[in-house]
């Protein structure tokens, strides 16, 4: 284990480190984000870019998509949510186990974007709680990476349930 090696190297064999349990759990949780990509629309193209080799989401421990909501930590909602798909989205969210976080990827999921009409949901936060909003239509990969780093910060700082 990396941490133990560092601690032994710096302080010697019989040393130990004290930390808050919350901080330790947060630290481990934030680097093993298993995502469930709920990809519907244009933003999916940028999600593909972010998760493949060029932008390499793996650096943040967040590359591995789990295609079952039961195994995922982060629901990443990518693309416009219409009223027809809305019940499916909330069902997927309910199936995820705690602790869970939600990223709204793209302006359609944040506010509805420029689709302000009879068919679209005006922001997924009217359906499920959202942790990080990533604006942009679609957001550039750099913006997405910043959003994910902000989520990691949030996970580190929050009160951990275990």
């Amino acid at each position: 284990m990396g941490l133990k090696r560092i601690v032994t190297r710096v302080f010697g064999d019989d040393s130990f480190v004290t930390t808050k349990l919350d901080a330790a759990i947060g630290w481990s949780r934030k680097y093993s984000l298993f995502m469930y990509p709920f990809v519907t629309a244009c933003c999916g193209m940028e999600y593909m870019s972010v998760s493949s080799s060029h932008y390499d989401l793996d650096r943040f421990g967040a590359a591995f998509p789990r295609f079952s909501p039961r195994q995922a930590d982060v629901l990443i909602v990518v693309g416009t949510i219409s009223h027809k798909i809305a019940p499916v989205l909330s069902r997927v969210y309910e199936q995820m186990t705690e602790p869970k976080w939600v990223i709204a990827f793209g302006v359609c999921t944040c506010t509805g974007g420029f689709y302000d009409n009879y068919a679209t949901v005006q922001g997924i936060d009217t359906l499920i709680p959202v942790d990080i909003y990533i604006p942009g239509c679609p957001p550039r990969p750099e913006t997405v990476i910043q959003g994910i780093m902000m989520l990691q910060d949030k996970i580190q700082k929050q009160r951990q349930e275990y």
Binding site: H83, K84, A86, P87, S90, D116, N117, Y118, A119, V121, T126, L127
Partner: peptide, 16 residues
């Protein structure tokens, strides 16, 4: 919805 007398913002959500 594409009839001209259907208002563009008249939503009929299933949930929410």
């Amino acid at each position: 919805p594409l009839r001209k007398d259907y208002p563009i913002k008249k939503r009929q959500p299933l949930i929410g």
